[in-house]
C-alpha cells in the first residue's frame, strides 16, 4: 500500500499545478501548505499574497490564519486592504488564486455563504470574504476541496463566487478580467475545465482510486478526459518537505 495519505497526495498535486507561477493568492489551510511546498519545489520564484495585505510572505512556521503575525515578519510588503484589493487584485497583478468552498458545481461556481435558504439557512457559512472579487480578477483560479457528495452538487444553494457561471463564454460576456477556475484538486482526483463547455472533467485519478469512487462522491455524472491518467504519486523529497519542514505536527496529514 501507499506510504502517503490522500491529503498528502492532494497537497502535492496542488503544489505541482503551480509550476512556474510567480504570484499566488493564498488561503489558509491546504492552499497555504500547497503554496509553501510549491515555493520549495516547482515554483522557486513564487511570491505568496494574502488578502490580509501581505505580499511576498516568508512564514517561518505554518500560519494559523491569513492574518497570522508570522506572515508579516520578513515579508516584502504589507499594505492596506484597500491597496491589496484595489492595486494588486483589481489591478490585475495576481496570476493564480486558491479558493475553496462548502459547495461547488460543475462550472466551478462556489458557495461559502449559506446551506439552505438565505433568509432561513440550515447552516450559515462565513460568506464571501474576498472570494467574490478574487474569483473575478485572479488570472486563474485553482480550487482545493475534498471530494464529497455534500460539496460537489448539481445546484448551489447560493452562488458566492463566480466560476464559469452557466458555461463557457459567460465570464467573457460579463467582461470579467480573469479566466476563472482552471483546476480542481481533490483527495481522489484532479479535474480540469473543458474550454468548450466550461465544465470540469476528471483528468487524473490518484493512485488506487477508481472512477466509480469519484462518481460515488459527486452530485452529477462528471465528464472524463479521453486521456485519463494516474496522478504521479508524491516523491520522497515532496513527502520529506511536507513532513519535516512544512507540517512537522502532521496537522494536514489525515
Amino acid at each position: 500500500m501507499s506510504d502517503y495519505s490522500p491529503s498528502e497526495m492532494m497537497i502535492v498535486a496542488a503544489a505541482r499545478a503551480l509550476a512556474g507561477v510567480r504570484t499566488v493568492f493564498v488561503g489558509v489551510g491546504l492552499p497555504n501548505i500547497a503554496c509553501n511546498l510549491a515555493q520549495r519545489t516547482v515554483a522557486p520564484d513564487l511570491e505568496l499574497v494574502y488578502e490580509s495585505g501581505v505580499y511576498g510572505a516568508r512564514p517561518r512556521r505554518l500560519p494559523l490564519s491569513i492574518g497570522d503575525p508570522a506572515l508579516i515578519t520578513g515579508a516584502l510588503s504589507v499594505c492596506s486592504m484597500a491597496d491589496l484589493f484595489g492595486l494588486y487584485l483589481q489591478g490585475g497583478r495576481l496570476e493564480v488564486a486558491f479558493l475553496g468552498g462548502a459547495q461547488i458545481d460543475r462550472y466551478g461556481n462556489l458557495n461559502t455563504t449559506v446551506i439552505g435558504d438565505y433568509a432561513r439557512p440550515k447552516v450559515r457559512l462565513p460568506g464571501s470574504g474576498g472570494a467574490c472579487e478574487i474569483a473575478i480578477h485572479a488570472r486563474q483560479v485553482f480550487i482545493i476541496m475534498r471530494l464529497s457528495r455534500r460539496s460537489f452538487v448539481e445546484r448551489l444553494d447560493f452562488l458566492t463566487s463566480p466560476g464559469h457561471l452557466g458555461g463557457a463564454g459567460e465570464r467573457e460576456r460579463l467582461g470579467m478580467p480573469g479566466r476563472g477556475p482552471q483546476v480542481v484538486v481533490t483527495d481522489k482526483c484532479v479535474f480540469r475545465f473543458d474550454p468548450a463547455s466550461g465544465e470540469m472533467g476528471v483528468v487524473s485519478l490518484h493512485p488506487g482510486v477508481r472512477l466509480e469512487d469519484v462518481r460515488a462522491e459527486m452530485g452529477w455524472a462528471p465528464r472524463v478526459s479521453p486521456d485519463l491518467a494516474e496522478t504521479e504519486p508524491p516523491t520522497q523529497e515532496e513527502l520529506r518537505l511536507l513532513r519535516e519542514e512544512l507540517d512537522p505536527m502532521g496537522v494536514y496529514r489525515s
Binding site: T113, E133, I136, P162, L165, L174, G175
Partner: peptide, 13 residues
C-alpha cells in the same frame, strides 16, 4: 465603484 459581484448572488440579498 468596484469590479466585483458580477454573477454572484450577493446583490440579490
Amino acid at each position: 465603484p468596484l469590479r466585483s459581484y458580477l454573477g454572484s448572488d450577493l446583490p440579490k440579498v
